[in-house]
């Protein structure tokens, strides 16, 4: 019984939030990875692309709610997602046409494209704040919980409760679907394979008759989709504030690099490594040990490795450590000079 309680405690406070946040990071990191391997630069504007996607979702959600279009207890934000994905893709393509394309044709160094992406980050950030304002937006509607702590306790008779929020369930399911779709596309379709071929060896891809402009188009379609979904899920789960998305770029880069830049599987693993480390390192283990240790062995204090204030800093610490010890990441990624 005590053991079960401690297990539920960990599930409730670490496993479920970790899976949720990890999924959001993984989707973001996939977007960064794909741009990095195919277009060959670190896209600092990716956080703002996510923010743009979330903003589109929010605006559409408002429109739908205003027009009294409802889908039972299902969150409206998920219903409008396909539309906001299209908006995000269009925005990405416009940015590429007016900004990134030039540097690609010039064959600029990747560091120049990186600085360019900072210009895009500023512009997009300003545009978003201009359209929707800098304030906090909550756009979750419908049923809030899949499982409530109270119901769980009643059902099982345990002391510890287990809560699963709808946003958590939606995040995990949508991430699994999207990742399966992405990997199916990259590994099984001719276009997906040609995209990987292009990122492997541009010259040879051209010789093989692969059209680079088409590859770029598809890259932005995928990036826009991933950014919009990742951003929306994060916003649904934690509430949307344009400001936080700027700060999300770094944990996302951390996830991409920890897993091995340029490797999609690495990006996903990286996302979960980051999210679980954040939770495991800042979790107060006192209650956990309360369940599994005899009373007189229980030490004082919260039994926390690092205070919760440092939660996000954990991802930066891991990022820096990985860069210093093993810059290629867990899965050997691609190094693009």
């Amino acid at each position: 019984m005590e053991f079960l309680n401690s297990f539920i405690l960990i599930t409730n406070y670490i496993i479920i939030p970790g899976l949720t946040y990890g999924s959001q990071l993984a989707l973001g990191a996939l977007g960064i990875t794909i741009v990095y391997t195919v277009l060959r630069f670190s896209n600092f504007a990716h956080g703002e692309f996510m923010s743009f996607g979330t903003m589109s979702t929010i605006l559409l959600t408002w429109v739908f709610i205003d027009s009294k279009i409802k889908f039972g207890t299902f969150p409206t934000a998920i219903i409008v997602l396909p539309l906001s994905i299209i908006f995000t893709i269009i925005y990405c393509l416009l940015v590429d046409k007016f900004v990134f394309k030039f540097y690609r044709q010039q064959k600029s160094k990747s560091v120049i494209a990186l600085i360019v992406s900072i210009g895009v980050m500023f512009f997009t950030g300003g545009l978003i704040r201009f359209i929707i304002g800098p304030g906090d937006k909550n756009f979750m509607d419908g049923e809030r919980f899949i499982l409530k702590a109270k119901d769980f306790k009643m059902l099982t008779g345990l002391d510890e409760g287990l809560t699963i929020k709808s946003t958590q369930g939606v995040t995990i399911i949508l991430t699994i679907l999207l990742v399966i779709l992405l990997f199916w596309f990259l590994n099984k379709t001719k276009t997906g394979k040609s995209m990987r071929a292009y990122s492997d060896n541009q010259e040879l891809a051209l010789l093989s008759g692969i059209n680079p402009e088409r590859i770029v188009l598809i890259t932005w379609i995928i990036t826009g989709t991933l950014a919009c979904v990742a951003g929306t899920l994060y916003g649904l789960d934690k509430s949307y504030k344009p400001f936080t998305y700027l700060h999300l770029v770094l944990p996302i880069f951390a996830a991409a690099i920890v897993g091995g830049v340029g490797n999609p599987i690495g990006a996903i693993i990286g996302g979960f490594v980051i999210s679980f480390s954040e939770l495991l390192i800042t979790f107060a283990y006192k209650k956990f040990f309360f369940y599994i240790l005899p009373d007189n062995f229980l030490p004082d204090g919260l039994l926390q490795i690092l205070s919760t204030d440092y939660k996000i800093a954990v991802s930066f610490i891991i990022l820096v450590l990985v860069l210093l010890i093993k810059p290629t990441g867990i899965y050997k990624g691609k190094i693009i000079e």
Binding site: F41, V111, L114, L250, A313, F316, L323
Partner: peptide, 23 residues
């Protein structure tokens, strides 16, 4: 420890370190 990194890794590393300092 980090100057051996490629330019965009260095950019990300320094950004991360500066965030840690602020934290």
């Amino acid at each position: 420890i980090s100057l051996g990194l490629r330019s965009d890794y260095l950019a990300i590393a320094t950004l991360g370190i500066s965030e840690i300092i602020i934290y």
